[in-house]
Amino acid sequence: MEKKLLKKDRLSGIVKKMADDKPVYAPVKDEDNVLFKILEPGMEPLISFANTKDAPKKVFFPHSELLMKYTRSPKGMVFAAMPAGEKEFVLFGVRPCDARSFVLLDMLFDQEKWKDPYYIDKRKKGTVISMACVHPPYAACFCTSVDGSPTSTQGSDIQLTDLGETYLVEFLTPKGEALAPYFAEATAADASAEAKKQAIAEQSAAEIQRKIPGRAIKPILDVSFEHPFWDTIAGKCIACGTCTYLCPTCHCFDISDEMKGDDGVRIRNWDSCMFPLFTLETSGHNPRTSQKQRWRQRLMHKFKYYVDNFDAISCVGCGRCVMACPVNIDIRKIVDDISKLQV
């Protein structure tokens, strides 16, 4: 695929130009958070930032999403309408770890047998422009331990890499190439640019010193469901959903109905395996009654069940849960500890 060089000061203008034509989600400063928002006229996309507080999964898998609308007739429920299909849009400024999360989510939402039309529609319409991490943005980053890298192109349609004076613009997919006209002023990249990127990739990956045995714990997890170790991890967990809501790969949801007068809607909302109610059955029976079980589920789901089902770790090493956990439950430490278990 094509590679180009773009003068750095031109990027912001290009993104804003795109935003004139179609919705563009970009990292923007919102008080003291950096969040993905649709760029409105006058808003400035953040070009230089560490990473967003919220994961960009919300663009494809919104926190609350309308599934359908219905009305009440004298006879009962009558289906009324579907949400409008998505228009084409651009998701700009995604970090490579987060872009990889889309590939992981695809495995679940776009399976052979059951397809999730809402997610798939958005994935089809959205073009992902990622920004390679020239330096890992956080000390909590650990993408290299979970099959990723600071310059991974997985899940990206275009990737930008800061080469100092210019950005290397890599058009990775046909969807990405469709945006090439916006980069008309960019010049062809030569072999030296590619070499530079290669050097950056190596350098940046090397800067991530914190390693966890992401793949290596799978055989241990296979046989340690009942291990007493699990009793030690979740005591201080307050059972909030911060980790799961900020996680780029957590995808559990709930479906709820709301009505007003004769109008009704069915909405799906993020849910969290950290919440006691997540598995509570009407009968009062709850297969997971303790926070220990819920934590085990979260960890197993990411490092064992997903590997069993899709041969992929459902964690991209973005470090959000590490940094945002209100009580500092550090998944890196837990994975470390698991790797040392005697089983």
Partner: peptide, 8 residues
């Protein structure tokens, strides 16, 4: 209520 705009 959230609005849906494509009738069926």
């Amino acid at each position: 209520l959230r609005d849906a705009d494509v009738a069926v």
